[in-house]
Every structure is written in structure tokens, then in C-alpha cells.
Amino acid sequence: MRGETIIVVRRVQVGVDEGNNPVYETEQETVANVLVGSPNGENAADSNRPDGIQIDADLYFPRSYTGVPLRGQSVIVKGRKYRVVGDPFPVDGGMTPTDWNMTVPVTRSDG
């Protein structure tokens, strides 16, 4: 198996403005060899969005990923931006049968 290359998009605070409000910029990190699970799409349950759809998928990050925690971050997969759900963390139980050890659930809403 071979994964795809995705982009992790992070918001980082770079300072504060005159009103002491945080100022953010984005940084991007390319991550290779990420397995992309099949997305599932379903109609949004919100009655205010009759044409809305929510797409959820799982990404499987490689053991070689040493970037910052993914909580609150976004990822770009095949040109589409998704939001990371929860606080994914690597799982190593002593066995290393594959190159991937972290499941990252992502979601996107359209419409």
C-alpha cells in the first residue's frame, strides 16, 4: 500500500493587534504517505440547509509524522479542505505491522 500526499493547515498566533486581540496566520505542512479512507456523504440534518451535505472520512497518518498535534487543524486532501475532528493521537502498542499508526477523522460541510 502507498498513501497520498496531503497538506496540514495550521493557524498560529503571530502576535496581537492594537486592541490586544490575537493575530493569526496559517502555515502549511506537506505530509506524504497518508492513507485516505473512502468519504461518506450524507444530507445535513439541519433544516436550515436543505441542500447541505456533510462529508466525513478517516485519514491514516504514517508513523513518520512528527508534526504538531492535529486538534483544531485543517487538512487539504485532493484539493478539498477538511476539518480535523477531535484530538487524534498515535497508537503504538509495541507491534508495528504497518507504516500507519494514527487515525484522523475529518469532516467537511457543503451547502
Rank of each mutant, 00 (worst) to 15 (best):
N40R: 13
G41R: 05
G41F: 08
G41P: 04
E42T: 10
E42S: 07
N43K: 13
A44W: 11
A45W: 11
P50T: 04
P50V: 00
P50W: 11
P50Q: 03
D51R: 15
G52F: 00
G52I: 06
I53Y: 12
I53E: 12
I53S: 13
I53R: 09
I53G: 11
I55H: 07
A57M: 13
L59M: 09
Y60H: 10
Y60Q: 14
Y60G: 09
Y60E: 05
Y60K: 08
F61C: 03
F61A: 00
F61R: 00
F61K: 01
P62D: 01
P62Y: 02
P62I: 11
P62Q: 01
R63Q: 10
R63V: 12
R63K: 06
S64H: 08
S64T: 13
Y65R: 02
Y65G: 00
G67W: 12
G67I: 10
G67Y: 05
G67A: 01
G67Q: 09
P69E: 12
L70Q: 09
R71V: 11
G72Y: 05
Q73M: 15
Q73W: 08
Q73S: 15
S74H: 13
S74T: 08
V75E: 03
V75C: 00
V75M: 04
I76N: 09
V77E: 03
V77Y: 10
K78I: 11
G79H: 07
Y82N: 08
Y82R: 04
V84K: 05
V84I: 15
V85T: 14
V85S: 10
G86Q: 14
D87P: 05
P88I: 04
P88N: 03
P88W: 09
F89E: 11
F89K: 01
D92T: 10
D92E: 14
D92N: 14
G93A: 01
G94I: 11
M95S: 13
T96N: 15
P97T: 07
P97S: 05
T98Y: 01
D99M: 08
D99P: 05
W100L: 01
W100Q: 03
W100P: 05
W100I: 05
N101F: 04
N101W: 06
M102K: 02
M102Y: 02
M102L: 01
T103E: 08
T103K: 09
T103R: 00
V104D: 07
V106K: 06
T107S: 08
R108P: 07
